[in-house]
């Protein structure tokens, strides 16, 4: 019983550390990007490996800052294009200008919440 409890506690600790590590790596990637793009991409790679091993979610802040196909760090205006589109469903379109991969993030839920507020 107690052993089970300890294992659970350790796992929680592990996930906490993993979340911290991902945050550290992405902040470093952002800082290093203007000088060395390759290194920033390497940090993203390590961050994703940590995320996979510990099975945690990538923080929302960093979710849209890397390409899901070529895993390069994205900075809007430098190597990424960000547009809002309304057709079919409202969404954000992010295009990676390294590999021309397109990612879509819907924001239907946020819009519905706003509509409900207005009434």
């Amino acid at each position: 019983m107690t052993k089970k409890f300890i294992i659970k506690k350790e796992q929680r600790e592990k996930k906490r550390i993993a979340r911290e590590r991902i945050d550290i790596l992405f902040t470093l990637a952002e800082r290093v990007f203007p000088y060395n793009k390759e290194l920033a991409n390497r940090y993203v790679e390590i961050g994703l490996a940590v995320q996979q091993k510990a099975q945690v979610k990538i923080p929302r802040k960093w979710k849209r800052r890397y390409c899901k196909k070529c895993h390069s760090f994205l900075v809007p205006g430098v190597n990424a294009r960000v547009r809002l589109r309304q057709k079919r469903f409202p969404h954000v379109v992010i295009q990676c200008l390294e590999c021309n991969h397109i990612m879509r993030f819907p924001y239907l839920r946020e819009k519905k919440a706003k509509r409900r507020e207005k009434q």
Binding site: E10, Q11, K14, I17, A18, R21, I46, A49, V50, Q52, K53, A54
Partner: peptide, 11 residues
Amino acid sequence: GRPEMRLKKRW
């Protein structure tokens, strides 16, 4: 150990 493997190994 590889950076992502160090997470798991010690526990």
